[in-house]
Design a protein around this nucleic acid. Sequence first.
DNA 1: CGCCAGCTTGAACGAGGTCAACGGGAGTGG
DNA 2: CCACTCCCGTTGACCTCGTTCAAGCTGGCG
Lengths: 253, 253
Amino acid sequence: MNSLGSTVSSEPRATYSLDEQLCAGCPIRNFAFCAGVPEKDLSRLAIVRTVRTFEPGTALFEEGDEVTHIYAVVSGCVRTYKMLADGRRQIIGFTMAGGLLGLSFADLHETSVEAIETTRVCGIARNDLMQLMDDYHSLERRLLFFLGQRLSAAQDQMLVLGRKTPLEKLASMLCCLSVKMSDDGSAQPVFRLPMSRTDIADYLGLTIETVSRSFSRLRAEGIIDLSGRDIVEVRDRDRLEQLAGKQTASRLR
Amino acid sequence: MNSLGSTVSSEPRATYSLDEQLCAGCPIRNFAFCAGVPEKDLSRLAIVRTVRTFEPGTALFEEGDEVTHIYAVVSGCVRTYKMLADGRRQIIGFTMAGGLLGLSFADLHETSVEAIETTRVCGIARNDLMQLMDDYHSLERRLLFFLGQRLSAAQDQMLVLGRKTPLEKLASMLCCLSVKMSDDGSAQPVFRLPMSRTDIADYLGLTIETVSRSFSRLRAEGIIDLSGRDIVEVRDRDRLEQLAGKQTASRLR
DNA sequence: CGCCAGCTTGAACGAGGTCAACGGGAGTGG
DNA sequence: CCACTCCCGTTGACCTCGTTCAAGCTGGCG
């Protein structure tokens, strides 16, 4: 996997960082759900949160595990997925810095989450979060907003999975990633793919071969260019967005 | 469509009910999001909410419309969907009595919603809802819970759309409907399908022909029985759930 | 009774999956 | 330093499953 010698395993190989910098200096302070806690009360947050590091391939939690914490991704990238009994996998989404993981009202997790890259996450115990939500209305409002965004993204992905062709699926994903992989939320023409072809296939409901063929076709048509296997350059954003179906039917009327 | 002569159209053919019964006697009072408003303050809710009736095929709202209200379904059934420019449609979900519609933090709706049957909905203006959320913490908590449930359902559906076979897709849907179509939240052996084969196809990412063949096969194998085209009897629940993949990989370990 | 919309069934086709071979870059060891 | 290996990705050939196209059926309603 990487030079640290981690292997694919369900054992979290975590590093506890006991004396992290205060929340005030946190890189995701203004983007993550914790922005719902007012500046003056940050110390309260800093006491209850724990920062951990996960190496590639290690699990943050798995489907069926008890829900104990919720997490904000500080840096890196994780995949959230569900499996069928025979090993078929559906990746629900990829979460980057600022993203929220594990917010659930059930007692057991309904998805599994694994680090794709070395990933730092900030965790808060569910009980502590509930307490904070009771005390800070703005935090609860912010979580509601995050869940709304997640639901909206999930609905978009249903359209992708149910009704788009492989080429359209890949184009949709690349359009999203060109925004998600940028630091400032704008669409970057050049960006890195943190996930493997297998991950992409399991995200789009395709096989790895079809993903590879779709990449080749996007490149052949001059819509994108690839450097190595993980650097994407968008050469014709208009055509990429057109393929992705950004203009939905109702907006064309 | 039905004896009232409504046709498929985007014009809402709505009936305003100006003097509805008070919220206290409402059939969904204890199930819908409004259960987050305490009993003693129900009158406040009753003032701001509006009940409307939509005939089959009429739109509650469409993608791109301004978000003005959120709705609770009082009775009937609606479909939420997204369209691509060339007419391909993906149904995001079906909402029955007690369900929530239109909760969004964007200014414009990202999905369209149409009545499948004659449907009564209770609407609250977004501004009024925001005010109520500020005043009643329990209401906001309840909306958060509803959104969490919706997200969870959306994730299940991604697994269905991305990785299941047609037979498994239909089995999954029937398992869900046997619960959703019951009054008490338990799985009923006999229930009615409110939606057409075309709706089912657009929900499962299939064609109408494949849906029809899958129904025939489930019947041929003695797993279900059909009376007419819309009454389903589950004859072998175990096999239906097995096909649906209720046991996910992690839970089998 | 006849029409029509929605559903079912059959036959042919093709998009995407499966299987297999090849390629290339990174890590390893001689 | 180079050869070897391994993993991941790409490409080609073939095949299958689900779609497409077409015909027939059914049940509700005029």
